[in-house]
Amino acid sequence: MRDLELTIRVTEDPDSPEYEFRLIVRDGRPADGCTVPDPAAALSAMERFGEDIFFPKPGPPKLCTQQYGGPQVAVVTGSINGRPVSVTFRRTDGCEISRWRAMAPLFGGTTGSRGEI
């Protein structure tokens, strides 16, 4: 990921305060203005899982376990390499829990952000 600017808003449950973090990357490196507690880990997760986690491609239906991982919600907006991003992460079933765990470093270490069930 060469250039990105993301705002991440995380809520632990509907009645809790919202946490806001920013991840800013210029020329592949975290830049001034990052407020994610571990920008290197967040960038590493993004490089590992690629843009597809933010821009899913249509494909065959997935079978997801019907387990509830918690009320946490993370809304990520901004841009990756000039491409607009607006995606929501939840923990509502096995597939969503997996996505959450993959991107946990981006969610700033708030309660539930590491994906524990």
Score class of each variant (00 low, 15 high):
36 V>D: 00
68 Y>G: 10
42 A>H: 04
98 S>A: 10
88 T>C: 08
110 T>P: 05
30 P>S: 04
93 D>Y: 01
74 A>G: 03
17 P>C: 03
94 G>T: 12
54 F>T: 03
84 P>A: 10
111 T>H: 08
111 T>R: 07
82 G>R: 10
30 P>V: 03
33 G>D: 03
104 A>V: 11
45 A>P: 04
2 R>T: 13
88 T>E: 12
30 P>Q: 05
18 E>N: 06
94 G>H: 08
107 F>N: 03
25 V>S: 02
113 S>K: 00
19 Y>H: 11
57 K>S: 02
83 R>Y: 10
34 C>L: 03
29 R>C: 01
50 G>Y: 04
37 P>F: 09
36 V>M: 04
23 L>P: 00
19 Y>S: 14
8 I>F: 06
31 A>W: 05
86 S>D: 14
4 L>M: 15
54 F>L: 10
76 V>Y: 01
65 T>A: 14
73 V>L: 04
57 K>L: 04
96 E>R: 11
104 A>Y: 00
11 T>S: 11
3 D>A: 13
10 V>I: 15
39 P>F: 02
41 A>L: 07
16 S>G: 13
43 L>V: 08
4 L>K: 08
91 R>W: 07
83 R>P: 04
34 C>Q: 03
5 E>G: 09
98 S>V: 01
81 N>E: 14
68 Y>H: 14
56 P>H: 12
41 A>E: 05
57 K>F: 05
101 R>V: 12
88 T>I: 15
79 S>F: 10
64 C>G: 13
56 P>F: 11
98 S>D: 11
95 C>D: 14
72 Q>R: 02
51 E>K: 11
99 R>V: 07
63 L>H: 15
58 P>S: 05
69 G>S: 06
107 F>C: 08
104 A>P: 00
3 D>T: 11
108 G>N: 03
62 K>M: 11
98 S>H: 02
45 A>M: 06
111 T>E: 09
15 D>N: 14
111 T>F: 10
86 S>Q: 14
10 V>S: 12
9 R>E: 15
8 I>A: 07
40 A>Y: 03
97 I>R: 00
113 S>E: 01
44 S>G: 07
86 S>I: 06
17 P>K: 06
12 E>D: 06
100 W>D: 00
16 S>Y: 12
81 N>M: 12
12 E>F: 01
85 V>T: 12
57 K>P: 00
97 I>L: 13
100 W>E: 00
4 L>I: 15
7 T>F: 13
98 S>T: 10
67 Q>S: 13
15 D>L: 15
105 P>N: 09
38 D>R: 12
26 R>P: 02
86 S>N: 15
42 A>E: 07
28 G>C: 09
78 G>K: 00
98 S>L: 13
40 A>K: 03
64 C>D: 09
